[in-house]
């Protein structure tokens, strides 16, 4: 599905990705974890072609992504910070993206699920952070694509929406889709993720299941297991 080989990326003098190789095959939830600034978002943006790496290759569905755009038809992406053109209303934005993709969308069900009906005619600039994130989620989940990339999907969501989000992800997982998530909320990872990719200083430090990570650090809770890895690194 996604195959990354020897990916290097630096922003000026800061090395963000330092030879990352990663293969993600088959359906399931893959959690990309790591401390702040470990290159999670850069990795995801490279897959989407928004960040252009200095060296290395990325293949999505056996297709080299460099300079390509058609492969993004199969990807739904949820950006980390919900930033939208402020002068559009929610309805216009959803309409525009639907028009762009030209695919069947089940936006109505999602709007109802997140209770966005009353915001449909409001401008995006006037919405609160959490509501913007809900709009973001609607835009991401409304198309039926085999690959979902979610960059910190939980930011700003209330508990009810969080439960809805988990249900949505569960449903997509059962449909056999590949879901890539970055997050800092370990409960979320513990309950959702099939496999963990742990990034540290631009490299993959660990790849495996949650159980394997716990075993490796001999801790029972994921949060502690991660903390152990991080403090060991600092020593």
């Amino acid at each position: 599905m996604i195959e990354i080989t020897d990916l290097y990326k630096r922003f000026g003098k800061v090395k963000v990705l330092d030879g990352v190789s990663l293969e993600i095959n088959g359906g399931g939830v893959f959690a990309v974890l790591g401390p702040n600034g470990s290159g999670k978002t850069t990795l995801i943006k490279s897959i989407l072609g928004m960040v252009i790496p200095q060296a290395g290759a990325i293949h999505v569905n056996e297709q080299h992504v460099k300079g390509q755009w058609q492969y993004r038809e199969d990807i739904n992406y949820l950006p980390q910070i919900a930033r939208f053109p402020e002068n559009l209303s929610v309805k216009e934005l959803i309409g525009m993206i639907k028009n762009l993709r030209g695919k069947k969308a089940n936006d109505d069900a999602l709007i109802e699920l997140f209770g966005l009906e009353e915001f449909m005619d409001k401008k995006l600039g006037n919405l609160s952070g959490g509501t913007k994130q809900k709009v973001n989620l609607v835009l991401t989940f409304m198309f039926d694509c085999p690959l979902l990339i979610l960059d910190e999907p939980t930011t700003g969501l209330d508990p009810v929406s969080l439960i809805h989000l988990k249900e949505l992800i569960q449903k997509e997982k059962e449909a056999g889709k590949t879901i890539l998530i970055t997050t800092h909320i370990m409960d979320f990872v513990d309950s959702m993720a099939d496999e963990i990719v742990f990034l540290l200083e631009g490299n993959i430090y660990f790849k495996g299941t949650v159980a394997e990570l716990k075993k490796k650090s001999s801790k029972n809770e994921l949060e502690h297991a991660i903390a152990t890895i991080l403090t060991e690194q600092n020593d």
């Binding site: 989407l48 993004r72 038809e73 990807i75 939208f84 053109p85 762009l100």
Partner: peptide, 16 residues
Amino acid sequence: SSREFTELLLAQPIRR
């Protein structure tokens, strides 16, 4: 000012 808009479009299947 259209930077957000550009970022939104870049993740869609459109040529840069």
